[in-house]
Design a protein around this nucleic acid. Structure first.
Length: 257
DNA sequence: ATGGTGGTGCGACCA
């Protein structure tokens, strides 16, 4: 089962890319972030031929997440129970017995800003949510746009990003508190080196210059780790015309033994 | 270099 995540930066603007990529990628599950449209504007007819099962948490102009699957999505939930967050950032469902939690983590704007404080509060709430989900569903994938580069290997020029938003110590510690629940960064099960990125700023020709960060992650739980057959970043869509600033990332799970 | 580009939607916002 191939499970992918992609911050599409507007599903309306990116629909041609999404259709092209799902045909090429063969993903069984696709988690999207920043769809930036209301539920009623979701292009079900365009995506239904590939993904018969869809869970959408839309929002006008900003945020919005969706979970698409070829096989049945069970136990779909939206948001974090008990956390009244007006922003559409969380959708979860179960496919073939694997819990899949799709997150669009708060960006945070800049260290110390009100949005940064919201980010840290949000990440603390989501830690508790993930702990509760893991207790119910030991086989779990947590994926999405994390808006945190886990460590300096994930940053093209760590000095330039030192203690800046996406790389600051409190954000990294919040992410580590998630990993401490028994989650693993699937990409790092296969690749230990630097120079692997999933997001490049639109400005200053950052992609062409290799100025990227790895902030889109696929975490797998302890119980699922033995089934991880591959993990990676699919860079091609970032080279297409009028791309998202993020490119898809994925994990492949071997069949249950 | 405190800029730069892109999406939404038509003026600021958010990233």
């Amino acid at each position: 089962m191939k499970i992918a995540s992609w911050n599409v930066n507007s599903l309306k603007a990116r629909l041609p890319h999404v259709e092209r990529w799902i045909a090429e990628s063969g993903a069984d599950v696709l988690a999207m972030q920043e769809i930036k449209l209301l539920d009623e504007a979701f292009p079900h007819l365009m995506l239904e031929p590939t993904y018969a099962f869809r869970a959408v948490s839309g929002q006008k102009t900003y945020n919005g997440v969706a979970l698409l699957a070829k096989r049945e999505l069970h136990e779909v939930t939206f948001g974090v129970p008990g956390y009244d967050d007006p922003q559409a950032r969380v959708v979860a469902g179960t496919v073939d017995g694997v819990r899949i939690v799709n997150l669009y983590v708060v960006n945070g704007e800049s260290v110390g800003s009100p949005k940064y404080r919201y980010k840290l509060e949000w990440m603390a709430r989501v830690r508790d949510y993930l702990a509760a989900e893991l207790a119910r569903y030991p086989e779990m994938v947590v994926l999405g746009d994390f808006n945190v580069a886990p460590d300096d290997r994930d940053v093209y020029k760590p000095e330039r990003w030192r203690e800046k938003v996406l790389c600051s110590t409190p954000e990294r510690e919040a992410l580590q508190s998630w990993l401490a629940l028994g989650l693993h960064d699937s990409f790092r099960l296969f690749e230990a080196g630097p120079g692997h990125h999933s997001w490049w700023d639109y400005r200053l020709m950052a992609y062409e210059r290799g100025w990227g960060l790895r902030i889109d992650l696929v975490l797998v739980s302890d119980a699922l780790k033995p089934r991880v057959a591959a993990a990676g970043i699919e860079r091609a869509p970032r080279t297409w015309e009028r791309p998202s600033d993020h490119t898809p990332v994925f994990v492949e799970l071997a069949p249950r033994p």
